[in-house]
């Protein structure tokens, strides 16, 4: 189960790195993309099982990234991890369809449980 390769997308370096490291500490392979554009690039070249996607980012942003990702037909699981609790972005990603929405600050065990459940 720890074989999943996870792409963390977060424009906040500290945030992205801490999540990535946390995932790695649990035995996942994790990579960090600091923007939506960078994430799409990596997704098209590498092989990832899961994207942990922040919503509010400069450039394409979370929603834009998700939309493009779906348009490209990439079959990949997506977990939204955001400081937002409601608002247009939440509504938008719900409409597109994601596997889970988690709120920052995330409880590590909740995050791990979520990943576990997605790959059972």
């Amino acid at each position: 189960m720890n074989s999943a390769t996870i792409l963390v997308v977060d424009d906040d370096v500290d945030s992205g790195q801490s999540i990535t490291e946390m995932l790695e500490s649990k035995g996942f392979q994790a990579e960090l993309a600091l923007s939506g554009e960078k994430a799409l690039e990596l997704l098209q070249t590498g092989s990832f099982n899961l994207v942990i996607l922040d919503l509010i980012m400069p450039g394409l942003g979370g929603v834009g990234t998700l939309e493009t990702l779906r348009k490209l037909g990439l079959k990949i699981k997506v977990v939204i991890l955001t400081g937002h609790t409601f608002g247009n972005e939440i509504d938008a990603v719900k409409a597109i369809g994601v596997d889970k929405i988690l709120r920052k600050p995330v409880n590590p065990s909740e995050l791990f449980d979520t990943i576990e459940n997605l790959f059972l």
Partner: peptide, 13 residues
Amino acid sequence: NHELRNPLNVIRT
């Protein structure tokens, strides 16, 4: 809300 939750997340992780 957003701006605080990010650093809080960093602290927690």
